[in-house]
Design a protein around this nucleic acid. Structure first.
Length: 345
DNA sequence: TAGCCGTGGGC
DNA sequence: TGCCCAAGGCT
């Protein structure tokens, strides 16, 4: 099958099977997409599933309908709205990018891959995706879906991540000036719904006839991957300090893990458990701290066991917040706060 | 450049 | 339960 025939099959499949996603302007090819919505959705979808990102996309676009609206929003509001979506550097860069577009580009997104690539938070993938989807530029849009599709289509034996350049080159050979935005989305839709990581639905694939991976009899074994390092465990203490109907929160430093987010006060997170006495000694105030549970949380590169201690009283340099308004907390602290608040004292 | 950076769902 | 995975970017 020639590359152009392969393209024709996949584009025809896309015309019939395109997913109905919140950020897609409409079902007809050629509909003008709003660059702001394309960009916002692409950033939210970085390493994030469609079901998880969708409610956040709807919330953001309802609250901040244009990039200039978002640019004018206070940092704390945007960070709180992002809480639960993870990878919080994305939210910090989202704001930086919105403000750069508002201030340096008169509120209009650059319409070239190169111009987009210069904005904060837009790497090779996102710049190409926005260029293709919003501006119909013939960009080579390569994400995890495309890498998987290419690795199967051509039965690439080299393992990821070393094979990334090869997979990108294979994808580039299929990009044309004709319908580049639809082509990018067709490839990603195929990867998400048919050429899935596990149990691919090859019988429904519009290009199975051309697939070398299927011909091997084990398409699901592609892409090959090098083994990952195991995840270490860390231990910490979270302090649930209440004052009547309020709870003490802190703002984490702007960079690093959960940077810029509201949080419960915590001890250091180290590689051995905390004893009761040292946990109390590390508390933000001298109070009658009592055990209030324990939670488990998994981050990308370590697992965390968080012991929750609870006390009633006062402390310096904390942000008092209503107990019932914990929506702005990252999931790990929401989990710890709920565990502590529901524990019997 | 390789390590850092969240979360929730599936199996 | 533990592991894998999802439309990556930054430093």
């Amino acid at each position: 099958m020639t590359p152009d025939t392969l393209r024709a099959h996949l584009l025809a499949w896309y015309d019939a099977q395109a997913r109905d996603l919140a950020w897609r302007a409409g079902p007809k090819a050629g509909w003008r997409q709003d660059p702001y919505k394309v960009w916002l959705s692409e950033v939210m979808l970085q390493q994030t599933t469609v079901p998880h990102a969708t409610p956040y996309f709807l919330k953001f676009t309802a609250r901040w309908p244009t990039v200039s609206d978002l640019a004018a929003a206070p940092d704390e509001e945007v960070m709180a709205a992002w809480a639960g979506l993870g990878y919080y550097a994305r939210a910090r860069n989202l704001l930086k990018c919105a403000r750069a577009v508002a201030q340096d580009h008169d509120g209009v997104f650059p319409d070239t891959e190169e111009g987009l690539r210069a904005l904060p938070g837009l790497g090779p993938y996102t710049a190409a995706a926005v260029a293709a989807i919003a501006f119909d530029r013939p960009a080579n849009v390569v994400d995890g879906n495309v890498e998987r599709v290419m690795s199967r289509l051509y039965a690439v034996e080299a393992p990821l991540p070393d094979s990334k350049p090869e997979l990108k080159a294979l994808a580039a050979d299929l990009v044309r000036d004709d319908r580049p935005g639809d082509w990018a989305q067709a490839l990603m839709d195929l990867g998400a719904t048919v050429c899935r990581p596990k149990s691919p639905l090859c019988e429904r694939c519009p290009v199975s006839e051309a697939c070398a991976g299927l011909a091997t009899g084990a398409p699901e074994t592609y892409p090959r991957k090098t083994k990952k390092a195991e995840r270490p465990r860390r231990y910490g203490v979270a302090y649930l300090l209440t004052r009547g109907d309020q709870i003490a929160l802190v703002r984490r430093p702007p960079k690093g893990l959960l940077g810029g987010m509201l949080a419960l006060p915590t001890s250091d997170w180290r590689d051995r458990p905390w004893g009761a006495a040292e946990a109390v000694a590390a508390a933000p105030a001298v109070l009658d701290w009592r055990s209030a549970g324990e939670i488990e949380h998994v981050f990308t590169h370590f697992s965390l066991t968080l012991t929750v201690l609870r006390a009633e009283g006062a402390a310096d340099e904390v942000i008092w917040s209503p107990r019932r308004d914990l929506d702005g907390l990252p999931s790990v602290f929401l989990k710890a706060a709920k565990a502590g608040l529901t524990s019997l004292l």
